[in-house]
Design a binder for these strands. Structure first.
Lengths: 207, 207
DNA sequence: TTGGATTACTGAACACTGTTCAGTAAGTTT
DNA sequence: AAACTTACTGAACAGTGTTCAGTAATCCAA
């Protein structure tokens, strides 16, 4: 069935084309300006064509989100290389924050925006929100090591993960959405305060 | 100038009418369904009329946000009544999380949504993001007391405030935006984990 | 009291958004 | 060559925030 295969390939190729254009627009002009119509114009197809490959915008955003999580996972593997679990935890935390501050639009997509989370139809038991699982598991494994070696104050690794994640996400998302303006500091001071806050937090969770 | 006064009153009255309808719609049908057109329909005026009282939707959302922060401030004053600074800190943290989980649309407006933060035109030095200041200062004062009585590990009250805020906001916003699905727990389990995480965190920041 | 200025308000339009669907044109199969 | 299938699109629908010319009511001075 060579023809069917080629058709299949072409279908995937088209999806890749759409995703690539979307991702480029996301990074170049931001989330707000990335509409179905704009993407269609970029790849020189009609807007309706996109709907032959994606059921709706959410599905497209979900794929884009998956790609963003792959990027973050790469960053983790690249930067969190220490043998010491606690040091590795620090590397993860700092890589996460840096990623969030450097790519706010991608961060939005992954952790803030409402849309692409709708994959929650657990009627039949399967599917249900796979995006970000590798990143989360990466964190979980390091935490497990730290707990095993009695380096962490937490007993439960889920609570530990939730605590660490909430802290770094809290810092990034408050800053990305400009809520730290209420603290009345300059931009540099805020980034500095964020760094200090992470260090203090990492000190506290150590045994 | 009685007439000018009456005009002034009527102008404020109209603003109040718009705000009241907006707030009701926010709480009843959520952020997504609260459009200028829907608000106009509710108060039985043309959409264009709203633009005689608010320059754009952001300005309206800003006022709405201010009102939401007043609500949170009331909750703080109501629930954070302990004499002990650390106990009071705990009451604040838990009140914050409860508020966020119970009124996700208001929480959105206050801490997540992009729009109404645009008040950052510090050209002349004035204005610049007043919303939420009372809430933040309330937290700051309690932290100062705790630091003065050497109950907190933090030395800098700004870092302390940032740390605590980031933690509670991280927990609420990840949950409100369904990102905790990746942890593979039921809804009850998640809320339980959030509670435990706060308790653990409050234990850690104690000297 | 009347006429002109001021004010409050609105209908209709503009430029967007996501999405759908009938219709066309090209490719494939028989 | 005819019939069927697939890939694609133009135009439309319903919604959004926003603007603006035009109307109707109110106010003020002559």
């Amino acid at each position: 069935m060579g023809i069917a295969d080629r058709k299949e390939r072409e279908k995937l190729e088209m999806k890749r084309l759409i995703m690539e254009a979307s991702m480029r627009m996301f990074l170049e002009v931001g989330y707000e300006k990335t509409s179905i119509r704009n993407i269609a114009e970029k790849i020189e197809y009609s807007p309706a064509t996109i709907y032959l490959y994606y059921k709706d915008k959410d599905e497209l955003l979900y794929d884009l989100q998956a790609q963003a999580f792959e990027q973050l996972f790469e960053v983790f593997k690249e930067k969190a290389t220490s043998r010491s679990p606690m040091k590795k935890l620090e590397q993860i935390a700092k890589a996460y924050v840096q990623f969030g501050l450097e790519k706010p639009d991608l961060y939005d997509l992954m952790f803030i925006i409402r849309s692409p989370m709708k994959k929650l139809e657990r009627e039949d038991g399967s599917e249900a929100w796979d995006n970000g699982a590798s990143c989360f598991n990466f964190l979980l494994e390091v935490i497990q090591q730290a707990i095993d070696q009695k380096l962490l104050k937490f007993k439960d690794r889920s609570v530990a993960a939730l605590s660490i994640w909430a802290m770094v996400h809290g810092l990034v998302s408050l800053n990305v959405r400009c809520r730290l303006k209420v603290m009345d500091m300059e931009e540099d001071g805020i980034v500095g305060a964020i760094d200090v806050t992470i260090d203090e937090y990492l000190k506290m969770i150590k045994i």
